[in-house]
Computed example of a mutant assay.
Amino acid sequence: MTIPAPRLEEITPGNLDAALGIRVRPDQEHAVSPVVKSLAEAYVHPGIAWPRLIVDGGRPVGFLMACLGIDWYEDGSVLRSGLWRLNIAAGEQGKGYGRFAVESVAAELRRRDTKQLYVTWHPGPDGPEGFYLGLGFRPNGETSGGETVGVLELD
């Protein structure tokens, strides 16, 4: 018997409510925008935003949104791709879904011949810095909206 692995699903009318139902822990809500905001941003950034529902065994466990060639400085001088948003459901954290999400975005960026994966995170003891550092991201010395900017080199 094969155990199903987590997978990504495009957001569709059929899974929209499941995506909107993803909630992080209350103590994390200040550090990540809700899925509804991400989907609104995806709507106004077509072709750049890459939103996906994370599903395991038929149940929704998280949401991610990658950015594909976003205009980092709003002047067209630097385009970057990376993990824009990551929301793992409160009861599903610590089960490897965050790692799966990052690895899935990295695989998509490699497929697109992108050499670096960027992410920003809320600094401080209640933020996800340890998670991202543990996956190999390194701060690049920049901040964005008060958040730390990290980069993962994709080989």
Rank of each mutant, 00 (worst) to 15 (best):
D75V: 02
G69S: 08
A40G: 07
A49N: 00
L53R: 03
P6W: 03
H30Q: 13
V119S: 11
G47Q: 13
P26C: 05
G150N: 08
K95G: 03
P128T: 00
T120Y: 06
V61L: 04
I70V: 14
L16V: 13
G57E: 14
R25A: 15
I3T: 09
V105K: 12
V44D: 01
G58H: 08
F63C: 10
P123R: 14
Y43Q: 14
T2P: 08
H122R: 13
R138C: 04
S104A: 15
L8E: 06
G94E: 06
E10K: 09
V36F: 11
L117S: 11
V78L: 15
A106G: 09
T114C: 12
E153G: 12
E129V: 00
L20S: 05
D56A: 15
I54M: 14
E29C: 09
F137Q: 11
I70T: 12
V44S: 09
P46A: 14
Q116C: 04
S77F: 00
W121Q: 09
I70G: 02
G130Q: 04
S144W: 12
E129Y: 00
V105I: 15
A90Q: 07
W50M: 07
H45P: 00
E92K: 02
L133E: 13
D126G: 03
C67I: 03
R99Y: 01
G91C: 09
F63T: 12
M1E: 06
G124R: 02
D113S: 14
E41W: 13
D75M: 04
P4K: 09
L117G: 03
E29I: 09
A31Y: 12
R25M: 10
T143F: 01
G82Y: 08
G146K: 04
R7C: 11
E41Q: 15
A18T: 04
I3G: 01
S33G: 15
P26Y: 03
G82I: 07
A5V: 00
E9I: 04
V36C: 11
R110I: 02
R138H: 04
W50S: 10
D71M: 02
L64Q: 12
R99I: 05
P51H: 05
V102K: 11
E147C: 11
G47C: 13
E147H: 14
V119Q: 00
L68P: 03
T148E: 03
R7L: 09
G21Q: 11
D71A: 01
E153R: 07
E142H: 08
L152C: 04
L20P: 07
L135T: 10
E74Y: 07
G82V: 11
G47F: 13
G62Y: 10
G124T: 02
G127D: 05
L152S: 03
L109G: 06
R7F: 04
L8K: 02
G57D: 13
